[in-house]
């Protein structure tokens, strides 16, 4: 379905617009009336306590769960499209658990992501050499030395980079990354953040994240979600100064923070298990 909408070229900037998005699971509103505008050239962070609806929001935009409201990108009404059409419209995502094709090599994983650029008949040909865009993505994510390794033997962080590389090959203009640095070491987080800033200039990058240090270091804009709703939006400084955010998420007293941290770690484990 096409909507009557100004072309991004007229506006000079690309964006994904979400209005009054609601996801209703049999009466439980996991996401409730969310308004968001995600602009090109920014690394946009989505934070909030567990159960705030961050992942569900991304699921709704990418066709995994039914939702009401509006989510449009260029002339596409995303809520009416199937997942694979949404990808072809230029929106890519990653999952909390890296889901690369373990038996394929790093290069093959990147190459298979280029299917969106190929006609069905071109698929019948064998791969010859490496397409330029695959080579470029391989360089950007820094896995050039591991190109012929099966993706299954990569370290956790490398798998996430490979997934980001696959999004680059797909030429996803909007990248929705669900906790890309979970389980990464400090250096890996640094590298991931730098990678996001590198590729973020011509794209819209949305990161769901728990790690506040990571958010502080790399966020251009932060949206805080709580109980399915947008609590507030702003720069890291603005968010940290916001009393309501402190109340639900950030500014707890030392003891409370510790207790909450423990509870959160617990919840993360459950969430991870649930999703696998």
């Amino acid at each position: 379905m096409r909507l009557d909408h100004p072309s991004p070229d007229d506006l000079g900037q690309d964006y994904l617009e979400i209005r009054d998005l609601t996801v209703d699971f049999d009466g439980f509103k996991a996401v409730s009336g969310v308004d968001l505008t995600l602009l090109q050239g920014r690394v946009h962070f989505l934070i909030g306590p567990n159960g705030a609806g961050k992942t569900t929001l991304i699921d709704a935009i990418t066709g995994l769960v039914p939702a009401t409201g509006v989510a449009r990108y260029r002339n596409h009404n995303l809520l009416a499209l199937k997942s694979h059409r949404i990808v072809r419209a230029g929106i890519g995502r990653t999952f909390q658990t890296a889901t690369v094709f373990e038996e394929l090599s790093v290069l093959q994983n990147l190459d298979i992501a280029g299917g969106v650029h190929r006609s069905p008949f071109a698929l019948l040909r064998a791969r010859r050499g490496t397409p330029d865009y695959v080579e470029a993505a391989l360089g950007t994510i820094g896995l050039g030395d591991l190109r012929d390794r099966p993706a299954g033997v990569l370290a956790h962080g490398q798998k996430q980079w490979l997934e980001i590389g696959m999004l680059l090959v797909q030429d996803a203009k909007v990248m929705l990354l669900d906790e890309p640095v979970a389980g990464m070491s400090a250096e890996e987080r640094e590298e991931t953040g730098a990678l996001l800033q590198r590729i973020g200039t011509e794209r819209t990058i949305v990161v769901v994240e728990h790690d506040m240090d990571f958010v502080r270091s790399f966020a251009d804009l932060v949206t805080v979600m709580h109980a399915g709703k947008v609590l507030t939006e702003g720069t890291v400084t603005e968010i940290q100064a916001n009393a309501r955010v402190q109340e639900v998420y950030l500014g707890r007293t030392a003891d409370a923070a510790e207790a909450a941290e423990a509870a959160e770690a617990d919840a993360v484990t459950h969430e991870g298990a649930g999703r696998d």
Binding site: Q108, D111, L123, Q170
Partner: peptide, 24 residues
Amino acid sequence: RSRFGELLVATRDAEERVRFLGHD
């Protein structure tokens, strides 16, 4: 040996993931 063959194996092993490569 074609890309279709790789895609078919990918579909066998991780059908849902293939959706997010832009294929039904």
